[in-house]
């Protein structure tokens, strides 16, 4: 079936929205850079995370677990568990984007919250691809630039407590979680997970409580039957997406 081509106006609109999200998201890469360095990662390690891992919540998680004194591998495991979210996005996006071969291999790298949110609602493959690429590429470029800036700034600051950078990490996680809290069951899961994690803190090695909280997700997922309306992020759920 032939889809109608995008009009020049539609193309401009999609590109403008994608770049706006890139700018807004890129801006908080400064926060990641500063937080990661104050967690004990080197500037090089921080920049490699943004270049190669390139999925904000997982990056913050790795830094956060390391900051709390957790083993690097606990941080990696938490990052991977959070990264499974992108697999769900991919399954949802594949029939829309219809890419194969090297294009799919390249596109996978910029498959993140923002690129999904800005293309999942497009009605044509052309529109979805354009939204996905403009958002994904502009976030990638700006996120990496701002990570480097934040990393060098964080290094200059030294002790994370000086400018409250340790408090910024919790706020960042809450902001990442926020769009999902529109759903009442997610609020219950979040509260249970927080209680489980905190009760594990005195009992286990740093990094383990967060992984243990993942058990709450398994339990609730097995025991409940309802689908979650907030599963795939919408335009309103990403920085710079709403006006």
């Amino acid at each position: 079936m032939l889809e109608p081509a995008l009009s020049p106006g539609e193309r401009t609109g999609i590109i403008r929205d994608g770049v706006a999200v890139g700018v807004a998201t890129g801006a908080y890469g400064v926060g990641f850079g500063a937080v990661a360095v104050s967690s004990g990662l080197s500037v090089a390690q921080t920049c490699v995370l943004s270049l190669l891992m390139f999925t904000g919540a997982s990056q913050f998680a790795l830094a956060g677990v390391v900051a709390a004194g957790g083993a690097p591998m606990s941080g990696a495991a938490t990052a991977l568990l959070l990264g499974t979210r992108n697999t769900l996005y991919g399954l949802r996006m594949a029939p829309l984007l219809k890419w194969g071969g090297w294009r799919r291999v390249a596109a996978a790298h910029v498959l993140i919250d923002e690129s999904t949110a800005m293309s999942v609602s497009r009605s044509s493959t052309e529109g979805a691809r354009l939204g996905f690429l403009t958002t994904g590429v502009s976030v990638f470029v700006l996120w990496n630039l701002s990570t480097a800036i934040g990393a060098f700034a964080g290094e200059a600051v030294g002790d994370p407590r000086t400018f409250g950078l340790d408090a910024a990490v919790g706020a960042a996680f809450l902001a990442l979680l926020w769009p999902r809290l529109k759903d009442r069951r997610n609020v219950v899961v979040g509260v249970l997970a927080a209680v489980v994690a905190l009760s594990m803190v005195p009992l286990s090695a740093p990094g383990v409580p967060v992984l243990a909280a993942g058990g709450v997700a398994v339990l609730v997922g097995v025991l409940t039957k309802r689908q979650d309306p907030t599963e795939i992020p919408g335009v309103d759920d990403v920085a710079g997406g709403h006006r």
């Binding site: 919540a57 913050f60 998680a61 956060g64 938490t78 568990l81 959070l82 499974t84 979210r85 919790g170 996680f173 809450l174 990442l176 979680l177 999902r180 997610n186 899961v189 979040g190 509260v191 249970l192 997970a193 927080a194 489980v196 994690a197 409580p209 967060v210 243990a212 909280a213 993942g214 058990g215 709450v216 997700a217 398994v218 609730v220 997922g221 979650d228």
Partner: peptide
Amino acid sequence: LIPVALLAALV
């Protein structure tokens, strides 16, 4: 649900 639980625990 995994991201919800992990992010809440991280907070």
